[in-house]
């Protein structure tokens, strides 16, 4: 209990389209322990950002239901003044697009100082400047003193993402959410930013939610993984279990879409995530995309089942699949599904 940092209970986030609300995050329940790294994976459009924004309560026009408990304080219902004290201090976020996430008219230094100013009035102007330069150093920006004076447009995407990371960790947050922190960057830069996050993980002692669609990154950095599809968590388990024994067909197909030698294409998911408006509103949201699963295998309204301690999967239909024993050859796995 005391080890629990974040507890999300039955969280739904709906957007209004026309006259109706559509759930981009649908009944999500999960926990994050202190110092733990939870990976959230899923295709683009599966609601990962919507979930992250809900945790930070950053949505301006959304209907939020359920609870987001950070150290037992409910983010969803707390007064805005309290929220302002927590955001940027106890919880912070790294955004996907470093090119647009910084104010183009404010020097880098000022943007880091702002978050220090907001949460630590005792620091004083000198103290803020000193700390801001330290932070720039910490995130691996060469010439920190100089960059402090520069404007965002003078820095590369990778450097700007480092600045955004510096802003996020400025007040030693307990919860750090990184929403696809490398997606917008060049491949070589991606690796550097991931290295930085891995390095910081050891230093800052925060619980981290790492959103990505790169399973390789999850395998390397996360302790546990939640797989998200169409606003729902379809499977959640420790990294080891999820990679060893993926149960949900979506997880399995995601894993198969990781380039592996000798892979087959049977599990490929068809199409893309339907837009919010076009999601099936009843029954399983996923069925339409896996025509290779027998119709009789689907559950009417799939719910989460704990198959093993800490390993949850939506619906029980995996039981209908032939799941090979662990000591069987990998290549045989695919034969079981049809």
């Amino acid at each position: 209990m005391s080890n629990e940092l974040l507890k999300i209970k039955n969280l739904s986030t709906s957007f209004r389209i026309g006259d109706e609300y559509y759930a981009a995050v649908d009944d999500v329940t999960l926990t994050l322990n202190k110092n733990e790294v939870l990976g959230i994976v899923g295709e683009s459009g599966s609601g990962k950002s919507a979930l992250a924004f809900s945790v930070m309560r950053l949505h301006t026009k959304a209907k939020i239901e359920g609870e987001v408990l950070l150290n037992n304080q409910d983010i969803v219902t707390m007064p805005k003044s309290k929220l302002d004290k927590i955001r940027g201090d106890e919880m912070a976020m790294i955004f996907q697009d470093p090119l647009t996430a910084l104010n183009p008219l404010t020097p880098i230094g000022g943007q880091i100082e702002e978050t220090l100013f907001l949460h630590n009035r005792k620091l004083g102007q000198q103290g803020r400047k000193k700390r801001a330069v330290e932070l720039l150093d910490l995130v691996g920006i060469p010439n920190a003193e100089r960059v402090f004076e520069q404007f965002p447009h003078e820095l590369s995407g990778g450097m700007r993402q480092r600045v955004i990371i510096a802003i996020a960790i400025a007040n030693d947050p307990k919860l750090l959410i990184a929403d696809e922190p490398t997606t917008a960057l060049d491949v070589t830069i991606q690796a550097q930013i991931l290295d930085l996050i891995r390095e910081l993980k050891e230093k800052i002692h925060a619980g981290i939610i790492l959103i990505t669609h790169d399973l390789g990154v999850v395998a390397e950095m996360a302790d546990r993984v939640a797989v998200m599809y169409a606003g729902q968590i379809v499977e959640i388990a420790s990294v080891e279990k999820l990679f060893e024994n993926p149960l949900h067909p979506y997880t399995r197909s995601l894993l198969n879409s990781v380039p592996v030698e000798g892979q087959d294409t049977l599990h490929v998911i068809q199409g893309v995530v339907p837009s919010l408006k076009n999601l099936p509103r009843e029954g399983c949201r996923f069925a339409a995309r896996i025509p290779w699963v027998d119709a009789s295998a689907h559950e009417e309204n799939p719910t989460m089942h704990e198959v093993e301690s800490g390993h949850f999967v939506r619906c029980t239909c995996h039981e209908h699949f032939y799941i090979p024993d662990q000591n069987e050859e990998k290549g045989e796995q695919s034969n079981g599904i049809s």
Binding site: L58, A92, F95, A101, N103, E114, I167
Partner: peptide, 15 residues
């Protein structure tokens, strides 16, 4: 609706 406004909110800036 610019992203850096979200950054500002995420920092804890009041509305």
């Amino acid at each position: 609706q610019k992203d850096f406004i979200i950054t500002a909110r995420a920092k804890g800036a009041s509305e």
